[in-house]
C-alpha cells in the first residue's frame, strides 16, 4: 500500500495539475475569507451598536467552512478523475493489477494519496483563520471539528470520484459523473422536502451533515454518514476492479 501511496503522491506533485488545483482553490478560498472578514467587521460593529454583538464563531466561521466544502465539490473530481481512468487508458491498470497487491491495497494507496493532497490543501486554508484569530477570539476546538468535517467530506467525495474513475477510461467522463453525483449528494436535503427519507435514514445530504460539524456539534450520526459513504464507494470501486479479472 505504501508503494502505491508513494507512487500516487509523486505522480500528483510531479505534474503541474495538482499545484495549480491547490493554488486556485486557495486563491478562491482566500478571496472569500478575506472579503467575508471585512464584511463581518462592518456587521459586527453595527450589531454592537444595536446592543447584540455578533459572534464570529456563529456568523462567520460556519458559513465559511460550508463554502469551503462546497468548493471541494468542484476541485476533487479533478483530483480523482485520473486515478483509474488514466491507468485504464494507458493500459497500466492491468499491469498494476498483476502486481502482488490486493485490490484493497491499491485502492487504499490511491485513496490515501488523494486524501493527503486534499489535507494539505485544507491545511493551507487554516492561514485565513489564524489571521482571523489574531483579530477576534476564536473557538479553536469548534474550528477543529469543522476541519474534521471537511476532511470527512473530502474522504467521501474522493471515494465517489474514485468509483466514477474506475468505471471509464475517459477522464472527462469520470469528472462529469463525479460532479453530477457529488452535486446530487449536496442538494439531497432540498429534494426530500416531505422529509420521508429523512425520517427513516436521517439526512442523506452531505451538506446537512457538514453543517452540523461546522457549527461545532460532533454527532456520531454525521461521522457515520461520511465514513459509511466513503466505505460504500471504496467497496464499489473494489468490485469494479475485481470485475476486470473475470471480464478478461
Amino acid at each position: 500500500m505504501i508503494a502505491v501511496f508513494n507512487r500516487e503522491l509523486k505522480a500528483y506533485f510531479s505534474s503541474i495539475l495538482a499545484w495549480v488545483l491547490v493554488a486556485v482553490y486557495l486563491l478562491i478560498v482566500g478571496f472569500i475569507v478575506a472579503f467575508s472578514i471585512e464584511d463581518f467587521a462592518d456587521i459586527s460593529m453595527a450589531a454592537m451598536q444595536g446592543g447584540r454583538p455578533a459572534s464570529a464563531m456563529e456568523q462567520l466561521v460556519p458559513p465559511l467552512l460550508t463554502t469551503m466544502g462546497f468548493l471541494l465539490l468542484f476541485f476533487l473530481p479533478l483530483l480523482t478523475m485520473r486515478l483509474f481512468a488514466e491507468e485504464r487508458r494507458s493500459g497500466t491498470l492491468d499491469l498494476l493489477l498483476t502486481y502482488p497487491l490486493t485490490e484493497a491495497q491499491i485502492l487504499a494507496g490511491k485513496f490515501m494519496a488523494a486524501l493527503t493532497v486534499v489535507g494539505m490543501m485544507l491545511a493551507f486554508t487554516l492561514s485565513g483563520f489564524v489571521m482571523l484569530g489574531r483579530l477576534t477570539p476564536l473557538d479553536w476546538p469548534v474550528l477543529g471539528i469543522g476541519y474534521l468535517g471537511l476532511l470527512l467530506l473530502s474522504a467521501a467525495f474522493l471515494a465517489f470520484g474514485m468509483w466514477a474513475s474506475s468505471l471509464t477510461s475517459s477522464q472527462l467522463v469520470a469528472a462529469v459523473v463525479t460532479y453530477g453525483g457529488l452535486l446530487m449528494l449536496w442538494i439531497l436535503s432540498g429534494v426530500d422536502r416531505s422529509g420521508a427519507l429523512k425520517e427513516r435514514f436521517g439526512d442523506l445530504s452531505a451538506l446537512a451533515h457538514l453543517t452540523n460539524l461546522t457549527k461545532g456539534v460532533l454527532d456520531t450520526q454525521d461521522l457515520v454518514y461520511f465514513l459509511a459513504l466513503a466505505t460504500l464507494f471504496l467497496f464499489l470501486t473494489a468490485r469494479v476492479l475485481e470485475s476486470r479479472k473475470w471480464r478478461g
Binding site: F201, G202, V217
Partner: peptide
Amino acid sequence: VLMISRQNNHKWDLTQNQRF
C-alpha cells in the same frame, strides 16, 4: 447503518457556551 446511527446517535456540543 445510517438508520442505526440515526436511532443511536450521540452528540457533543463543543461550542464554548454550549450554543446548540
